[in-house]
Design a protein around this nucleic acid. Structure first.
Lengths: 107, 107
DNA sequence: TTATTGTACTTTGTAAAATAAAATACAATA
DNA sequence: TATTGTATTTTATTTTACAAAGTACAATAA
């Protein structure tokens, strides 16, 4: 079922389980950001990986990239409407995390 | 902030972004399952990976493993209360996916 | 004036993670 | 009696993520 027919829920999970995507989205929900700034906010992402994830999120229509100036380089990444609507997913994760991952059990 | 102080939301994201976890949880929300059965339901997971993820989910208290018989081997995996409460996260993902990933844009 | 810092990436080589395929040791079923 | 199914584990290979350094300049600090 999952592989044969196309399933939007399956596709959404595929997207959200891609490493760093949820962290990136969570940060961008707080406001637009430059590349390095975003990397620092997310914490621990590799430049290569971050660049690739942002490109993917952009082509899926969740993120918009705006080049403010070429030299010195300055870029802005921000969520699209579709991206912003992931706030509800993050909220659900937040509620669950606050309830079930308070201290002790380290992931 | 994310690395220095412990953050339950960050920890929850770490957990949910681990490859296959969301798929596994989504399947187990439909009911308990054996190892191979679960693997087939999830679709495409490797045995090694599935075993490792289940062990991780178990030690985090999201999944319970019950050995029904050693030989022939028969095991049952099911969600704990904490695990079942991820239904809300899956629901949020489902709503978002149905709205924003209808056809066309393949992940 | 000059040195330093910061920006957005890309390149290159390495380490970690996921994968496929096969093996195990038996019972139940055909 | 041969086949199928169970829950994993082993081994070797592929894919993914990583760290470190490099680029080409402007704005800022010394």
């Amino acid at each position: 079922m999952a592989e044969h027919n196309y399933c939007p829920v399956h596709a959404a999970i595929e997207l959200l389980q891609e490493k760093w995507n949820l962290h990136i989205i969570r940060e961008l929900l707080k406001g637009s950001s430059g590349f390095n700034e975003l990397g620092r906010a997310v914490g621990g992402v590799n430049s290569n990986t971050l660049a690739q994830r942002l490109e993917h999120l952009e082509q899926l229509g969740l993120v918009t990239k705006t080049i403010i100036s070429t030299m010195p380089p300055r870029t802005s990444y921000e969520l699209t409407c579709a991206g912003f609507e992931l706030q509800e997913v993050i909220d659900a994760i937040q509620r669950w995390g606050l309830k079930h991952l308070k201290q002790e059990v380290q992931v």
